[in-house]
Simulated scan of single mutants.
Amino acid sequence: MSSPVRFEVEAAGHLGHVFASRRTPGTAAGPAVVLVHGIGASHRYLERLHGLLAKSVDTYSIDLPGFGATPRPEHTLSVAEHATYILGALEQLGVLEFVVVGHSMGTQFAVEAARQQPKRIPHVVLMGPVVNDQRRTVAQQALALARDCLFFESPSSNALVFTDYLRCGPSWYLKNLRLMMNYHLEERIGGVAADVLVLRGEHDPVAPTDWCHRLASRAATARFVEIAGTGHVVQHNRAVEVAGSILAFAQGLPAGRETPREFTA
């Protein structure tokens, strides 16, 4: 599989990057999958998952405006504006229907996109969703993230996340952190018509099991999958299992709890 092609796409007045892996027409095994990063991050920690999904389906990873190597907008975009960018960018690339997969704060963008244009998004995958409704302070979230990095992440996942945080910069990160903390995913998910998959790593302190179950219970139709032996950045450390769960979900098949592990750091 060749490397994804990067497209610089302006949508809704903002500039971002879309990394596309398109299969030969007629050879894809299911609907296109769109991967959306979380706060401070970029497509880089989604690359392993992207590569595995691209073996079966058209796959797109997005660097939202102001993240990765994209230019910073003049103002901090709201969750709704990020969702509008995602929908507009994919429409420009001819992707009119897709499975949206968000990680961490990306789950907020995914839910908002599904609410804005439900006919385009039949399936939503929420990996390590935030913000836990019983730990709504910045201090609690910071402590959970610190525990995750110290005890449950691989050196490679930590390196990807922290170098992207450096590129993001503290000012832009904090501005987006306020948005993340003020978005109540547990309330917004009730307005999603799509089927929902809530997915977490077994040891993820940012998205604990009870929070994920509460979130799934508020969706119209949802299932829950837990991937053994990893933390918050589950899509990097257990890319094989996550890809299998996403493809099974999108195709309406049972999703197993665990498959053979690859990509260990």
Results as ranks from 00 to 15, higher is better:
residue 100 V to D: 07
residue 101 V to E: 00
residue 101 V to D: 00
residue 101 V to N: 00
residue 102 G to A: 01
residue 102 G to P: 01
residue 102 G to M: 00
residue 103 H to S: 05
residue 103 H to Q: 08
residue 103 H to I: 03
residue 104 S to D: 04
residue 104 S to I: 04
residue 104 S to R: 01
residue 104 S to Y: 01
residue 105 M to L: 11
residue 106 G to S: 04
residue 106 G to T: 02
residue 106 G to E: 01
residue 106 G to R: 02
residue 107 T to W: 03
residue 108 Q to H: 09
residue 108 Q to Y: 10
residue 109 F to A: 07
residue 109 F to M: 07
residue 109 F to I: 09
residue 109 F to K: 06
residue 110 A to G: 06
residue 112 E to A: 08
residue 113 A to M: 10
residue 113 A to D: 07
residue 114 A to T: 11
residue 114 A to P: 11
residue 115 R to Q: 10
residue 116 Q to L: 15
residue 116 Q to W: 02
residue 117 Q to I: 13
residue 117 Q to T: 13
residue 117 Q to A: 15
residue 119 K to P: 06
residue 120 R to H: 01
residue 120 R to G: 00
residue 122 P to K: 03
residue 123 H to W: 12
residue 124 V to T: 05
residue 125 V to M: 07
residue 126 L to T: 05
residue 127 M to D: 04
residue 127 M to N: 07
residue 129 P to I: 04
residue 130 V to K: 08
residue 130 V to H: 11
residue 130 V to M: 14
residue 131 V to Q: 10
residue 131 V to W: 08
residue 131 V to L: 14
residue 132 N to V: 13
residue 132 N to K: 09
residue 133 D to W: 10
residue 133 D to S: 10
residue 133 D to Y: 10
residue 134 Q to W: 11
residue 134 Q to C: 13
residue 135 R to T: 15
residue 135 R to Y: 11
residue 135 R to V: 15
residue 136 R to N: 10
residue 137 T to Q: 08
residue 138 V to G: 05
residue 138 V to E: 14
residue 138 V to A: 13
residue 138 V to Y: 12
residue 138 V to T: 14
residue 138 V to N: 09
residue 139 A to D: 11
residue 139 A to H: 09
residue 140 Q to Y: 06
residue 140 Q to H: 05
residue 140 Q to M: 09
residue 141 Q to W: 14
residue 141 Q to D: 07
residue 141 Q to R: 12
residue 142 A to F: 07
residue 142 A to S: 01
residue 143 L to Q: 07
residue 143 L to S: 11
residue 143 L to W: 09
residue 143 L to G: 02
residue 143 L to D: 11
residue 144 A to T: 04
residue 144 A to G: 08
residue 144 A to S: 05
residue 144 A to E: 05
residue 145 L to E: 15
residue 145 L to N: 11
residue 145 L to G: 13
residue 147 R to S: 15
residue 147 R to D: 15
residue 148 D to E: 11
residue 149 C to N: 14
residue 149 C to L: 15
residue 150 L to M: 14
residue 150 L to G: 04
residue 151 F to T: 09
residue 152 F to C: 01
residue 152 F to S: 03
residue 153 E to I: 02
residue 155 P to S: 05
residue 155 P to H: 06
residue 155 P to T: 04
residue 155 P to M: 06
residue 156 S to P: 06
residue 156 S to W: 09
residue 157 S to E: 08
residue 157 S to P: 09
residue 158 N to C: 15
residue 161 V to F: 08
residue 161 V to G: 03
residue 161 V to W: 07
residue 163 T to A: 10
residue 163 T to F: 01
residue 163 T to L: 06
residue 165 Y to I: 02
residue 165 Y to C: 00
residue 166 L to I: 03
residue 167 R to H: 01
residue 168 C to S: 01
residue 170 P to C: 02
residue 170 P to M: 04
residue 171 S to I: 03
residue 172 W to L: 05
residue 173 Y to Q: 11
residue 174 L to I: 14
residue 174 L to Q: 13
residue 174 L to W: 12
residue 176 N to C: 11
residue 177 L to M: 14
